[in-house]
Design a binder for these strands. Sequence first.
RNA 1: GCCCCCAUCGUCUAGAGGACUAGGACUCAGGCCUUUCAAGCCUGCAACAGGGGUUCGAAUCCCCUUGGGGGUACCA
Length: 510
Amino acid sequence: MIDNGDGPARVRFAPSPTGHLHLGGLRTALFDWLWARKTEGQFILRIEDTDRRRFDPESMDSLVNGLRWLGLDWDEGPDVGGPCAPYVQSERQQIYGVKAQALVDKGAAYRCYCTPERLAEMREAQRRAGKRTGYDRHCRNLSDEERRQYEAEGAASVIRFAVPLEGVTVFKDLLRGDIEVENRQLQDEILLKADGMPTYHLAAMVDDRLMEITHVLRGEEWLATAPIHKLIVDAFGWEMPVLVHLPVILDPSGKGKMSKRKKMVAGKEFLALVHEFQECGYLPDAMFNFLTNVGWNFDPDQEVFSREEAIERFSLEEINPSAAALPYEKLDWLNGLYIRELTPAALKSALLPFLSRQLGVAESELRSDGKLEILIPVIQERIKRLDEAADWIDWAYQEADTIEYASPKLLIGRKLDAAQSVDMLRSGAELLAEVEPFSAEAIQVAFREKAEELGVKAGSFFGPVRGAISGKKVSPPLFESIEALGREETLERLAHAVAFLEEHMEMASG
RNA sequence: GCCCCCAUCGUCUAGAGGACUAGGACUCAGGCCUUUCAAGCCUGCAACAGGGGUUCGAAUCCCCUUGGGGGUACCA
C-alpha cells in the first residue's frame, strides 16, 4: 500500500529509451536512488518504450552505463528482474489494453475514431480562429449506432480519457503544495494509441500502481499533466503516490531547458550527456557530489561529502522547486578536488585509458612505465579532468629530436640573452652528467648550488632547462621531470636545445 | 494566446517574521607562497526583481506587476 510517511519507499526511474542519458535524467535518477536508500526501500528501473517511432536501441546501454557509472544500483529492473516483472513497458502491452477497456466500461474513457488528419485540421482551424487548441471531443458523445458504424468499417481508434466537464481537480505536489486546475482546462488525453500501445498517461499510472510505487519523482515538465494523472488514478479508484516534480535543469546560459545537444556559451562548450562527462574524465564521486547539490543542498557549510553522508541527510521536502542551471565551474573545481584525494596508484589506473588513447601508447606499456610513477604525483594537483593529463606529460613520450621549440624565446631565461641561456643549458648538462644519485632531490640541490655559483636567479637558470626538456613554457616541476626522463635522455634534449638556440642566435638576440 | 510553476550575489545555494551589517561555495580580482603552472592560505567585488499591503517588526506571509520556466502531440 502507499505509504506517505517515512517507511521504506518504492521509487522508480522511468526513462524512455530515445537517446543518450543526459545530466537532467541522471539527476532525477540520483534523487530517486537517494530516497530509496534513505528509506531503505527499493529503487526500480522501468523502461518506458511505448513510443515505437522514437525508440533508439543504443539508448539502453547509455542508460545502464550512465547509472552504473554514477554508482546508482537498482533493486528491480529489466536486467535484474523482480516481483513486478516485466519492467519494460512494451512487454506489458496487454495489461494496458485491459486497464484502458476497464475505464471505457466504467464510462471514464471512450473510443475515438478521429483520424490524425482530422485532428490536424481541427487544430489548424482553432489556431486560425485564435482559439486554444485541443481535442473537440467529437467522439465523446457518439451514439451506439455511430460507434457500431465505425467498428463495422474497421476504423482505427484510440481510447481517450473522459475528463469531467466541470469542477476542479486538486492534486498535491510535495514541494509546491496543493495545485488546483479547472477541469475545463484539461484535455481528453489519449490513453491507448491506435497501435495498441499506451501513452505515458495510462502506462505510468498503471505501472506505478502495479509496482506499488510510493513516491514519483519526475521532471517539472510533467506538472501540467499531473491533474490528468490524478483524474485517471481516481477513475480507477486508486490512491495517488506522493508527487515530487523536480525542477528542470536549465541550459548553461540559464535560458531554457537543457537539451541533449552540446551547448556553446561565450565560446565555451558545455556538455550535457553523461557519457561525454565520462569521456572527459570526470570522476563518478565528484559528479555524485556535484549533482546532489543542484536542487538540493547537503549543508550550506560543507561542499564536499560522501555518498553515505548524502543518504543520511537527504530529504524530499528540502528540494528547491526553482529551476537551476548547472554550475559547471563548480564541477571542475570539485573534480579537481576529488582527483587530488586519490592515491597516486588509483589516479594512475584511472588515467591509463586516457593516456593510452591520447599518447598513443599501449596501456600495458604505460602500466609498467617508470616515468608515470614519478610524473603522476606531480601532475595530480594540476589537473581538473583526467583528459588534461596527457598535455602535461606528452613531452616525456617523445624522442629528443622530435621536441619542437616553438621559438627561441622558450629557451631564454628571464633577464638573460641567448648566449647566456646557452651557457645555462651547458651548465645544466655538465651538472646532470655527474649528479648522483639521479633523483629529483639531488638534482635540485645541485641546480641550486650551481645557480648560486653562477650568480643567477634560480628561475633564470631553470627556465631554459624546462623549455629544453619539455618544449613547453609550462610543465610539471622540473626536477621530477628530469628524473623521469633519465640522465641520458635529458642530456640529449639539452644538447638538442643548445643546437637549436645557437642556430637561432641571430633571431633571438634581434 | 491560454493554463500551470518559479523568483536571494554572474552561477549553485543558506535563510521557514526579530539572531541579516543577508551566510557559504564556485567564478573573478588582489596578496602571500613559489623553478613555470598548479595546489594551499589570506583579502576583496558581488544579491533579497519592482510596487502595494499585513505586522511593533518582512528576504521570509498576502496581492499586483515584471521577469524566467514548463505545458498546450496517437512524445515522453
